[in-house]
Amino acid sequence: MIAQAIMDGLIAGAMIGLGAIGITLTYSILRFANFAHGELLSWGAYIALALSDGLGYLSASLMLPVGPFSFGWSLPLAAILAVALTGTLALLADALLFGRLRAKGGTIIIMVMASFGAALTLRSLLEFLFSTKPAYYSKALQIALPLGGEMRATPDQLLTLGLAAVLVIAIHLLLTRSATGRSMRAVSENQQLAGIVGIDVRRIIRIVWLLGAGLACVAGIMAGLVVQIRPHMGHDLLLPLFAAAILGGIGSVPGAMLAGLIVGLSEAIAVQVIGAEWRAAVAFVILVAVLLTRPQGLLGRAA
């Protein structure tokens, strides 16, 4: 049972980790906790659903399952478009709301409150457009494959784990090896200095929104693929996402992923050991414990 809990925890942790990377990037550069980030997961999942269904309508063959997976080519194609559209949604939110507040010198609390408002609006809009009924990318049933040691996982679940690993490595390389990544780290440390070394800070902010929203979209699609799609799916993940971002250390991409896995594993093991009703409390306990004992997180820098 514990072995299976570990596998379930890793899969949940991969989704939490990807979402937490977006939170940690936006927090370290925009300096506020964006409570609308969970909604980007939900919107990403629903945009991919709408596009995938649309592609399936145009060509039924695109809906036929690919290899051992439950979905057809329509989903990966839709996912690429959904990443771009979720990024556009985040840029729109910045242009209409957060950017305007920043320009007026909005304090952190104003930005946080605005993000609560944005979250509520985006969630209600999803309920209005898609209803609160759960939706699925595919109704095909998948048999979990034995992995040894009483562990089992479906091909979809293994794919989400592999994709999360690839994305974390890609983001880490982007931040450490590319000019854009170095500029992002520079802006994260000191925006004013970044400006006087020639970095266009507004361009970096746009890149961070696109990257954070894109990762949220992928995490949302993963959650939709291995669980289900609901308007509240992102909102329900918000506490684990923040717990992972803070546990990993704000600004640290490997930290967010590692912490996402820790939160996912802790939740899964807690379900086995103390009962499912305590699952939601686990992220909260981790969050409080980290803030009290190591506020800079596992891989973050001390203030």
């Binding site: 000019a179 170095r182 500029s183 780290r185 520079a186 440390e189 000191n190 004013q192 200095l193 970044a194 006087i196 070394v197 020639g198 970095i199 820098r301």
Partner: peptide, 22 residues
């Protein structure tokens, strides 16, 4: 600037690379 005139979390070389981007 008088203070906070380098990126302390970046290496010496990265500080120069960031400035050399333009």
């Amino acid at each position: 600037p008088q203070t906070e005139n380098i990126f302390t979390t970046l290496t010496v070389h990265e500080n120069l690379l960031v400035a050399a981007n333009i």
